[in-house]
Write a protein that binds this DNA or RNA. Structure first.
Lengths: 236, 236
DNA sequence: TAGCATGTTGTTGTGCACAACATAAGAAGA
DNA sequence: TCTTCTTATGTTGTGCACAACAACATGCTA
């Protein structure tokens, strides 16, 4: 009856569950900039950390590479991809359209439990704004995204939205890290997101998922516009 | 100076090229029903056929499993997934919307070479209709899909459209195989597709990619409606 | 003869050793 | 001192052997 040496590692998880756990862990680290863009990872180190061999770990790396978050180069290493605002323009262009579709295709039946989840995250969002931590902002932003995608039951749409979201998730933190000192701009980002959460929550409360989709669409478009402006001001 | 023992295997292809070649080969076999839904594949056989070990081949199988075309079960085998019309409803729902987006997001500049490709496939489509072979229909349909996606330069949109297309590509051949003897229905399918190709070709000739997207959208929706009807008539 | 336990066979999953490859350091030469 | 070739080092890619697991066949028992 040996206990697991690592926390958060249930003994009854199958190979599929283990794969998912490692995958999500690494994906979160990349998107929270725990792994800086351009930095090198070693397969053996990661394998050792998660208590497996290189072989099953490589399956995770292959998937992350297919999603554009990593790049394995023979004889060099596994490099965390760098991101550029211009390269992400097409991804945002598509995310904008898919956000609208989330409110239109196969909408869920809104029940009390769903409304409660939106109200809960809205309350935590309000607290986050008071503190003003970019990292906490990114965390709640990620959580809110997952909640938003549950508004549709169209599974392919949810999968694709998730994939595109994680391709763009890093750019906000990366841009924000260059704006330290400009607290007004950061505070504006927090308040804007706060309004988005409030508006979408109220739309869900009224059962108007189409409206929720339009609000989300508009906010994604405006968010990217601000990111592009902040990057352009830096470069120009 | 050993010559390659297999045709279509250039010696200068990198590991990336080899991966893509094996991947597309297996994907085509699955979608052309060369591998019947539910049939079992052996990793070692496939590895031997392509002249590699199991290790690199498994990367291909992992990707095909992620796309829903295969299912690896420990101790059992690698099974070609079966497809159901009802399960594909959501995929079609999304494909319909993405087809419209292809004509709207980042449209390409239409030049003479692009028009020539559409006219070429239109001519071959006309010849196909005269012969009336379901397999040849599927092949041209696949080729036309790839040509259609070149109407947008939005790379994520093209990738996602491709993935969803191959998830649904088998259902037509599978449904058609049950309709042998109903030559009128098959001929109707051919002629309908012929009209789609003609309409989209003319839209491209006029540089109206938005219209091309709408035509494509309508045809995908109608095609799935007919497939659902044919399946329902069988079951009911 | 039905039911069950058990061994046998076949397949995918994993770990490990080595090959292929790229990079950087260092030495030799001009 | 600069250039260039060689060598050393470190990393990912591949092949192979074995473990984990499931399905099937076989024989034993009631």
């Amino acid at each position: 009856m040996m206990a697991d040496h690592a926390a958060g590692k249930p003994a009854d998880e199958g190979v599929r569950g283990r794969f998912e756990r490692i995958y999500q862990t690494l994906r979160t680290r990349i998107c929270m900039l725990d792994y800086a863009p351009g930095s090198r990872l070693r397969e053996e180190d990661l394998a050792g950390e998660f208590g497996v061999s290189r072989t099953p770990l490589r399956r995770v790396l292959v998937k992350l590479e297919a999603e554009g978050l990593l790049r394995s180069v023979h004889g060099v290493g596994t490099i965390v991809t760098d991101i550029d605002v211009d390269e992400l323009a097409q991804v945002y262009e598509l995310r904008i359209e898919l956000a609208e579709l989330v409110g239109k295709l196969s909408p869920v039946i809104v029940d009390a439990a769903l409304i409660a989840r939106f109200r809960d995250i809205r309350a935590r969002c309000d607290r986050m704004v008071a503190e003003g931590d970019p990292r906490e902002f990114s965390r709640i932003n990620m959580e809110f995204f997952h909640l938003f995608t549950t508004l549709t039951t169209n599974e392919p749409l949810r999968e694709i939205s998730e994939r595109l979201y994680y391709q763009t998730a890093r750019i906000w933190l990366k841009t924000a890290s260059r704006l330290e000192g400009f607290d007004e701009l950061l505070q504006n980002e927090f308040v804007t997101f706060q309004r988005e959460v409030a508006d979408i929550t109220e739309a869900v409360e009224h059962g108007d998922l189409t409206a929720a989709g339009y609000v989300r669409r508009a906010h994604i478009a405006m968010s990217f516009s601000r990111i592009r402006q902040a990057s352009g001001a830096e470069a120009g």
